[in-house]
Design a protein around this nucleic acid. Sequence first.
DNA 1: TTATCTGAGTTTCATTTTTGAACTTAGCTT
DNA 2: AAGCTAAGTTCAAAAATGAAACTCAGATAA
Lengths: 137, 137
Amino acid sequence: MAAAVDLIGDRWSLLILREAFYGVVRHADFRDDLRVPRSVLTDRLAKLVSNGLLNKLEYKEDGARRRHAYVLSPKGQALAPAFIALTEWGTEHCLNGKSPIDIVDKTTGQSLYVALVDEDGQTHPIDQIAIKVLQDG
Amino acid sequence: MAAAVDLIGDRWSLLILREAFYGVVRHADFRDDLRVPRSVLTDRLAKLVSNGLLNKLEYKEDGARRRHAYVLSPKGQALAPAFIALTEWGTEHCLNGKSPIDIVDKTTGQSLYVALVDEDGQTHPIDQIAIKVLQDG
DNA sequence: TTATCTGAGTTTCATTTTTGAACTTAGCTT
DNA sequence: AAGCTAAGTTCAAAAATGAAACTCAGATAA
């Protein structure tokens, strides 16, 4: 996990990725949503790109010049479960359970939640877990 | 999620909680494991306590004076799924899949993984999800 | 052509945070 | 009493942040 914290363990990177997860792609939109200083945003976007979490794409709308879009790479998208787990935690423990969003199955519309499952897909309660540290070498 | 980031969105808090999750409780042990400056550790532990993520308990070993143990509160323990998700991500995307730890069921010993499940306990693939933003008011 | 607008990025500088080291404290052991 | 140790405090130097001004490229309007 230290590896993850190295890449996203600052005040802004996680929030920037969350916005990207919600579909934000433009510099100005990140800035408006997060109130992050320009210089910091520029720096964080560049780092997230160079760490492979975001891809920087050029695009062009009619009557506007070329722009850059920052979109989640597969590596960035793979953080979704962590985002969702953090969001659920925040909702439950900081916001009295009033969730601002709902994660649903795209086709069935069912609400989805983070859980621990074994290889058979059986869910296990959180207080049933133990950590096994593997020896190195 | 912004709420979560407010509480743990700095370089050290998350790592401190991870150590706590692994069973570390003493100031010196956090320091040795993380190489975090004393003053920062003192500050972060105090903040985590005042935010209700850690409980500060007194204990006493024979031949030693009273000490403080910092142990996860239920609120802190509830971050476990987020930790595990981040750890899995770090393992897969930063460490070539070589995991240093294994999360298992305490009684059966089965390995456990983070997944998205619906209310029936059915797991859903990550690329099947959509975000539904709930209107406020 | 020239002027102006806009999104994105850079520069600058004051403020805040983090570091690392030295120092203090409480209470133990000898 | 002297020394040790875990924990905490203080403080100067280094780094990160925040706010504002400035630059740049391309689009549009006069």
